[in-house]
Design a binder for these strands. Structure first.
Lengths: 218, 218
DNA sequence: CTTTTATGAATGAAGG
DNA sequence: CCTTCATTCATAAAAG
């Protein structure tokens, strides 16, 4: 429940403030992490779609002379690895050796049930050795346990292995049914905005149909 | 209890969150209203572009027999070089981008209690964009809410600096030639209305329009 | 610098 | 609803 109260920022002191725009100071409008995440995903999704489409287009154009509908240099730099990244500025926590040591020790103590209260406690302790949040600790234990578990399964390469029959557990969600492939997505209002008033120019594909007028239907 | 459910766009400021940031690359998640608006518009534009691209693609595919080119499942990211050749469909449901958008929108509409009937309704709508079940929707809302709540309480503060006064001037500044990392965030870089740079692209991006480095087949 | 690995984080689903 | 698990994704770190 509410045990997840936010932790106070541990960075008691600014190492050097070299980062510029340090935490304090000129903020006009701030987005929560969640909002940022949503935005990031949103953009990433479109970037992915765009990327895929461009590839498809390239494939197609290589087979046909579609000079009339060229998209030109419509290529997006990998957004997921650089673009959106800059926006969110996500970084992942990296445990310090000391923190890691403590965590490992606690883990070995046989505590298979890291309760939330425990998490808080651990977090407090670890924050002595570096910035950390309860979420980090939580995740760490989750991952640690999962990893341990999986490792037990893996080692099975002794002697003549019985041809482990591939379990065809393919329930295969018909997520990719060829029949409904026409799931043409219609861009919902991303952020409650209307794109009507936006005039966007496409490179060479100015011939692009106006989405509002010709919504096309296969 | 202050349920955070949905975030009114008028959010004034963020409590603690990423204000701090270690000595390293600290991102100032700050945006002015204007910038936010621009960003939103840009995303909307992106949506429009994608829509058009999809239509274009459909037009093209109707003229050619493309083997196995599916547009629906954009998610099958081949980034996985794990060598696993089995393309086993995922067992668990993965929302398509469109479904996700719709879900997010509904969630933002402030409905904290998706009734059963509502679930059915939503499911019906979403099934237009891909396979989905009521259970999926139900779970999604449950998880969504839990997640929001938790993020509210536990602002993730990453980037640990265990005394190392290293100035992580940025994440892998692989190629950030553009100065959008400047303190003044310029959304324009994301989706410039310019014809040339339709997408997020780096000025330095070489002509190598190779999408994600082809993971290729080992 | 590019590729690979290790692992933190995200998320759908199950349990209670 | 809240917690927990399993799987997957992304990225910092390591290897080449």
């Amino acid at each position: 429940m509410m045990e997840w109260e936010k932790q106070p920022p541990q960075q008691a002191e600014e190492p050097s403030g070299g980062g510029g725009g340090g935490g304090g100071g000129m903020y006009v409008k701030v987005m929560t992490d969640e909002q940022m995440e949503v935005l990031r995903k949103q953009i990433a999704v479109y970037a992915t779609i765009c990327e895929q489409l461009v590839e498809l287009h390239k494939t197609l154009t290589s087979q046909n002379d579609l000079s009339g509908v060229r998209l030109g240099n419509l290529y997006c730099d990998p957004l997921m690895t650089s673009g959106a990244h800059k926006i969110t500025g996500r970084q992942r926590w990296t445990p310090t050796p000391m923190q890691l040591q403590i965590l490992e020790r606690i883990f070995d103590q046989g505590v298979g049930t890291p309760s939330k209260q425990k998490i808080k406690d651990i977090t407090t302790e670890l924050s002595q050795h570096g910035q950390i949040s309860e979420t980090n600790v939580y995740n760490w234990f989750q991952n640690r346990r999962a990893r341990s578990k999986r490792k037990q399964h893996a080692p099975q390469s002794n002697n003549n292995n019985n041809g482990e029959s591939e379990v065809e557990t393919e329930v295969e969600s018909s997520n990719e049914k060829k029949t409904n492939t026409d799931e043409s997505f219609q861009p919902q209002n991303i952020l409650s905005s209307n794109s009507e008033d936006l005039c966007f120019q496409n490179p060479q594909s100015s011939s692009a149909v106006d989405p509002r007028t010709s919504k096309a239907e296969p």
